[in-house]
Structures are given as C-alpha cells and as structure tokens.
Design a protein around this nucleic acid. Sequence first.
DNA 1: CGGTAAGTTGAAAAATCTCAATCACGGTGG
DNA 2: CCACCGTGATTGAGATTTTTCAACTTACCG
Lengths: 259, 259
Amino acid sequence: MLTTLPRAMTMPIISDMVNVPNTVEPLKVACASCNLRELCLPVGLNAGELDQLDGLVSTRRTVPRGDHLFRNGERFQALYAVRTGFFKTCVGSEDGRDQVTGFQMAGELLGLDGISSDHHHCDAVALEDSSVCVIPYSQLEELSREFTSLQHSFHKIMSREIVRDHGVMLLLGNMRAEERLAAFLLNLTQRLQARGFSPSSLVLRMTREEIGSYLGLKLETVSRTFSKFQDDGLMEVKQRQLRILDQAGLQALVNNSRC
Amino acid sequence: MLTTLPRAMTMPIISDMVNVPNTVEPLKVACASCNLRELCLPVGLNAGELDQLDGLVSTRRTVPRGDHLFRNGERFQALYAVRTGFFKTCVGSEDGRDQVTGFQMAGELLGLDGISSDHHHCDAVALEDSSVCVIPYSQLEELSREFTSLQHSFHKIMSREIVRDHGVMLLLGNMRAEERLAAFLLNLTQRLQARGFSPSSLVLRMTREEIGSYLGLKLETVSRTFSKFQDDGLMEVKQRQLRILDQAGLQALVNNSRC
DNA sequence: CGGTAAGTTGAAAAATCTCAATCACGGTGG
DNA sequence: CCACCGTGATTGAGATTTTTCAACTTACCG
C-alpha cells in the first residue's frame, strides 16, 4: 500500500501544530512501512502478510480538491484508503436532498457501501487535494480467505463503520444543535490527534453547509453556534481556522442531556 | 439453520392478511429448506454449502417479549438471525440518552456491531415473543474462508447495513416529521410484503415512543402525525392496528422535498 | 374490575429554519 | 499592484416546526 508521509506525521507532536496543507514531496512507501498502518486496513498483520497486501495494493490515485473519487451509481470495484487529504461522502435522494454521511481523513476507508450491490451508494468528494490507495475488492476478498488476520481486521473495519453510523443516528435523533456541533468538533480533534496533529488547533476542510448537512442543521445554525461557542469562551473561530480553548467544556455540553 | 415457518409464509398472499402473532407449532427445518433463506445469510449458496452452514447454525434461542437478546457491553460471540418475531436495537450514551437504531424482523441479522470490538455496542430487545438462529461468529469466519459465496454474502449483508444506516441519516438529517413517518411506514410495509404479508394492513409491534426514538421525534409528534395522516385519508390507525389507504400518497410525501 | 402503560389532544414555549442584508476573503484580470 | 467579483460566512428578525407540559382517554393484564 503506497502512501505519503505528511510532514506532521514525521515530526514529534508539538502543542500547536496545525493540520496545514501538506507541502512535502510525496514519498512512496509500502504498507509495511506506512505511517498510517495502525489506522488503516493492515492492523494486526505480520510481516509476511503485509508483503502480500503490498502486492495487492499496488496503485494509488490522486484526487484534486473538488473532484469525485467515485459517484453514486458507479460500478463498485475497489475500496480506497485515504493516504493524504480529506474527503466527504454524501448520499442523495431522487428529489435532490443531500446528506453528508461522513468525513474521511488519512488512514480511513472509503467505498464500503458499494459491496452491497456492486454499485456505489454515495458520492465521495475530495475536500482538498488528496491521494488514496486503491484496493481491488475481489483481490481483497481472495487474500482475506488466506489470512485470518486480514479477514478479521476487514470485518472489524466494516463493523466499526456500522457502530460509527449508529453514533451519528444518536446524534441526529437525540441532540440539539450545540450538542451536535460539540460532539462533531470533539470527534474531529480526536481523530486529528490520533494522527499526530494538535488536539486544539485545526483548519476545517469543509464549509458550514457541509458541516450542517452532516449534523442535520442549516448552515446559519452552524455559524450561529460557532459564534456562541466563541462568546462562551469555548473556542476561537475565524473562518475555517479553529482553536479549542475548553475541551472539557465541549465534552460537558455533549454529556449533559438537557439539564 | 433451524427455523420455524410462520403460518402466513406457507399460505398464498391474500390481500388483507395481517402480521398477527404466529400461533402454529414451531417446526424445525434446516437452512436448506428454510423459508427465509432468500432473506437471510445463505443467499446464493449451493446445496453442499448449505449443508455445511446447517452444521454451523445448530442452536436456536427463544426470546420472550421484553427480554434482551444481548446487551451493550456484553462479550460478542455470535450473530443472530431472526427466525420469528420482532426486535429493536438501541444505543445509549453515558448520560441516559437512548436511540433506537433499527427494527429487525424474520430473516434479518442482529449483532454486526459487536464485531468491531468483541463487545456488543447496542441492546437488542424482543418486541414480541421471538426466536433466533445462533451463528457462532468464529465458526462463520472459518466457514467463509472456505466458501467464497458465503464470504461474499456475509460482506454484502454488512455493507447493506451500512447503506441502510446512511438512509436513516438522510431521514434524520433532512426530513420533517411527516416525511420521516411516511418513509418509515413504507419501509415497514415493504419488508412485510417481502415476507408474504399484506402490504396494506399491519400491526405495529413497537410503541409510539419507540417509533419516535427511531425517527428522532417525540412520541406526541408521532401520534399527532398518525392522526393527521388519518384525517388526510392516507391511512386508518387504531392503536397499533394500521391500514394503509393511499400508498402513493405516502410515497409522494417522502419524495416532495419541500414544495 | 381496577390499575398501569400506552395513546391522544391542546396550548404555550422553545428550537431551528427561512429570508435577507452585510461582511470577509481569495483569486483574477485590468 | 490593486480593484473587483464570487463564494462562503455572519448576523438579525420573523416564520415555522417541533417540543414540552398537562389533561384526558383507551386498552390491556392480572
């Protein structure tokens, strides 16, 4: 599995490091030496198995900002592991409704919905210039019949997506605007932190409208809630630049149902 | 895979047949002759493979109404295929929020969320006296390494759950109360119809509160919306007994975003 | 029967959306 | 190099939807 190393991931974690666009030269590496390997598919594989997986994942693809990685209705042939960059996935209904179902960053898998019917059920759009590892699905199935650990980690990844989706349902079904946004921000910073970025300072890759679509809110509500969080001293927002000032305060918002 | 044949499923489809509780004697049959086999795990398996699967799924379990099939936090060891009856699954957050994430009927699989961490991430509760086939997960993994078709149909089922969840997100994020309830009813009747029940007449197995939890609405809103649908001539409701009078009208509600 | 859980309905409150005006910023072309 | 343009973001005010609280009815179960 080829990948680049975002500069930040080769550096020690420093407190105010920000997820600025990656400017280093892309550097090809195999799954075995990929810095994302603890986040991506090959969790728990031994050296020999990793080698085999490398053979499988031999192509990569770059996706410029704004381009589709795949579209709803297209034939499903491969999964994609994000190497660098940032994606959104969204489903639409016949009548033009549109719902962002997730945001994916380095090490996360795209395309699992396509397995169900050999066709993709959502659009995947790059929110910044991105690159992905292409994982041909039929070969992945084949290989996962040989290696128990690969089979197991693939199943876990699918199951984890289901668990994640249930969490989003809880958010959409039970939480009010402030709680949704707080939960969203905490989730985002946690995932960035797991990738070596600052837990407090980040650049949003998506618009207010996309955040709103994900959270079931209108963009104005998202904007207003950001402003309120700022007034309350929970964070600083300036356009897409964001700094968390009181993580515990956000967490408290999420936890306290309605008291 | 042992199963019973609900009386309704052995009868021709008649227009006003209702999903009344099953009162026939349970009758043990194997996956190979299970009436649910087109809905359940063994889709696309040949005779020999079905025999093997039968060996794997040798135990069943009955779950009285109100009892848990499994609980959030319990160790995950098996998947469950609903043979007869009706379940809900729900996730809860630390602070006592509760969200129904799905309703499962005959032929549908429960427990996929448990694979991610070897522990269940939701509660599964029987909404009527039910019975399930127990599918030990480790044995399923083993067998699906041997049979491509089993592996494939298992992956499809997981993927289908992801697609379903994304549909619920669309519903929760984009639709208003009437649209949500209409979409819910159409989904329910469609699934019942696929099982040989009437598409127009049904008995709700869940309370207004459970419907509301699933749809992100309060029980009063569900009740009011039912009443409105009745006033509009779309359906007749009397407690849990429900008759669809204008399926196209419900469909139109779902389709017309906001015009 | 009687008690309890579930369901219905009304009226007021709250949250969110809609519409509209304005502001900020990045990129482009004169 | 700077003015201009367009997209995205902010903010306000009023409209709408949904929730909340409360009273009351109905059905079910022992």
